[in-house]
Structures are given as structure tokens and as C-alpha cells.
Design a protein around this nucleic acid. Structure first.
Length: 323
DNA sequence: AAGTGCGGCAACCGCAAAAGG
DNA sequence: ACCTTTTGCGGTTGCCGCACT
């Protein structure tokens, strides 16, 4: 933010940092550490408030910051963690080494949010927009959606509580106390989000109950595109505007030579694994789900599978057996 | 070339929690 | 136990630069 003009008369400088200020701050911290940010400002010969110095250091000057393009894997991580944690940017940042919460927040707001919207997912809930909008009226299918959203939310809250508890325990267990290391703390090796287990388990419960209730009304669900054969390998092609799962827009009638690989990566398969080697069981589940519940649900299933990853194969297989 | 609109992002604001006295 | 100061966090602002007309 560049508000310096309105604070020109003030003793405290605001607005964009100059290279000279950066150099002073960096030199001081390298020599003395930051200590109290308020006193640092004066000692370093800066006319900035301590808060501004801290922010500058934290978001820009630290040596262990990676800037620039986010990788596909980072995209995936942010999307998954945002589905789990919401706008808890600092928590999300602990899983992305060398990325700041501010950068992740900006990246989400300017890129990822739009990508999700583009492929028809509500960025706030990570669910198909149709399902969210549908909950406004009272038909049974939409009430069912609402129920599943509530289950998701409940699972999310439980997972979050467990996540926070576990993180605190880990912090406590490993705990160096130097002041400078506090800033580095969030760049420790990423914690495995074990709370995903809870979320996954709950998600599968939801899926199973959803599949049971939806199959009864399968005959009523029309097949609007007349195809009905949504499969694992091409479900990302159902979007009209050539947007793949990571939101890259290839324009109308696109042919994206890498999207299968990107998709498999996002779905949790190894990058080197070609789509042809994706287990046929997965295709069967999508196909069956599409057949029983309609393509809309099949797409939801694909999105859900995308969100929770593919490691939970046992549940995946049991879902197939149920169907 | 000049004007306009818009997206990206650095930096600020305000609040809450934690730490210190 | 209470008050003050410091730190952390998420939301928001507004300048810069680019694309478009």
C-alpha cells in the first residue's frame, strides 16, 4: 500500500519501502536479530513503526522466502488446505515452506479463487455452485445437499480442533527458543495434516449415504448431455470453457496435452504415472456414480476425490462395492 | 499517443491473543 | 488479577503497470 502522501507530515514514514531502508533493516537484523520491533526501528536508523518493520521483514526480506510462480503442487496444497481450514492463511503457510501467509492470501484472492469459480466451484465452500444455490429451495435433493454441507462443516471443525491440538503438541516437543527462530518456526518441515483422516472418513460416510439416497431417485434424474458416461479420464473436460482442474483456461475447444498429467497430479497420483495406468476401479466408480446419480453428482464426486486425495483407496473400493 | 479500466500485490488497519510487568 | 505492550492474523486499500480502446 502506498499511503505515504497522506502521512507526509508525520514523523513516521509509511508506504513503499526503498532499497536503502531494506538494506538498513536487513543489516541490523543480521547483526543483532530483531528483538523488540519498536526499538529496532530507531536502532536501525529507520523512521518506520515497528509493525511496519516486522511486516517488511516477515513478508519480503527474510532470506528463506521463495517468491514467484507457485508450482502445481503448491496450488494443490493451498486448495486442499483452504477446503479444510478456510481463510487460516498462517496455518496454510506452515504447509508451504518458504511461502508467506500474505503471499498465499494474495495468490488465493487473485488466482485460485477465480479458478475455482471458473470450474463451477464455490471458493468459500469448495462445492459445486449449483449445490449451494439449490439449497435455497426446498426440494429433497437440495435438502440432502444441505445436510452433506453440514456434515462437511462438522468434520472440518473437528479436524481443525485436532489439527491445532497436534500442532501445539509438536511445537512444544521441538521448541528452540531464540527470538530469531520464532520467525523461522513456520518454515520448519511441513507438518503432515493428519486431520485429513477425519475429513476423509467423514467424507466417505457422506458419499456412501449420498449414493444410497440418490440411487432411489436415479430414474428421475435427466441426462442433460445425453452421454451419461462420465469417467475418471475425461471428467475434467465437461466444463464448457476449456478450464482444467487447476483453472488454466485453454479457450474454447481446447486440447490440452498436459492436463491429464496435471489432473493426475492434483488427484494425488504420481506425476510420472500416465493416465492409462490409473486403476480402472476408479473409472468404474465415477461411471457408476454418474449412472446412478447423474453427471452433476459424478462431477461432485470428482471434486471431492480431488479434495481429499486418492490415498484413501480402501474406502474408495468399499464405495465401489456398495454401488 | 493518450485515456481508461482492471488485475496484482505490497503494505496498512484493526482486532485479538500472548507476553510482560 | 489487572493493565499495558507486543505480536500475530485476516481483511482491506490503493498504487503501479499492463492491456485495451
Amino acid at each position: 500500500m502506498r499511503k505515504s502522501s497522506s502521512y507526509a507530515a508525520s514523523r513516521i514514514k509509511r508506504g513503499a519501502w526503498t532499497p536503502e531502508e531494506d538494506r538498513k533493516l536487513l543489516a541490523y537484523i543480521q547483526l543483532h536479530g530483531h528483538g523488540s520491533w519498536r526499538s529496532l526501528s530507531q536502532k536501525a536508523g529507520l523512521k518506520r513503526c515497528g509493525k511496519s518493520c516486522r511486516l517488511r521483514w516477515r513478508n519480503y526480506l527474510r532470506p528463506d522466502i521463495k517468491r514467484g510462480n507457485f508450482s502445481l503442487h503448491e496450488d494443490q496444497t493451498i486448495i486442499q488446505l483452504h477446503a479444510l481450514l478456510g481463510n487460516r492463511w498462517s496455518a496454510i503457510a506452515t504447509h508451504l515452506p518458504k511461502r508467506t501467509d500474505n503471499e498465499i492470501k494474495n495468490y488465493w484472492n487473485t488466482h485460485l479463487k477465480k479458478r475455482l469459480a471458473k470450474i463451477g466451484l464455490d471458493p468459500a465452500t469448495h462445492k459445486p455452485k449449483a449445490a449451494i444455490l439449490g439449497s435455497a429451495n426446498g426440494d429433497p435433493k437440495n435438502l440432502s445437499n444441505l445436510s452433506h454441507i453440514a456434515q462437511w462443516e462438522s468434520a472440518r471443525i473437528q479436524a481443525e480442533a485436532r489439527f491445532v491440538k497436534e500442532s501445539k503438541l509438536r511445537m512444544h516437543a521441538s521448541a528452540p527458543a531464540a527470538s530469531l527462530s520464532d520467525e523461522h518456526h513456520q518454515f520448519a518441515p511441513p507438518l503432515v495434516p493428519q486431520c485429513l483422516d477425519i475429513l476423509r472418513a467423514s467424507a466417505w460416510e457422506s458419499l456412501i449415504s449420498m449414493s444410497k439416497s440418490s440411487s432411489r431417485s436415479a430414474a428421475l434424474i435427466d441426462d442433460t448431455n445425453g452421454q451419461g458416461n462420465v469417467s475418471f479420464g475425461d471428467h475434467h473436460h465437461v466444463h464448457d470453457h476449456g478450464v482444467n482442474m487447476v483453472g488454466q483456461d485453454y479457450g474454447p475447444n481446447f486440447e490440452d496435452p498436459t492436463s491429464d498429467q496435471q489432473l493426475s497430479s492434483l488427484m494425488g497420483y504420481d506425476d510420472a504415472t500416465p493416465m492409462s495406468s490409473v486403476p480402472t476401479e476408479s473409472m468404474d466408480v465415477y461411471e457408476l456414480f454418474g449412472q446412478y446419480c447423474g453427471n452433476e453428482w459424478s462431477e461432485s464426486l470428482a471434486a471431492l476425490h480431488h479434495n481429499i486425495g486418492s490415498e484413501f483407496e480402501d474406502a474408495w473400493n468399499s464405495l465401489e462395492q456398495i454401488m
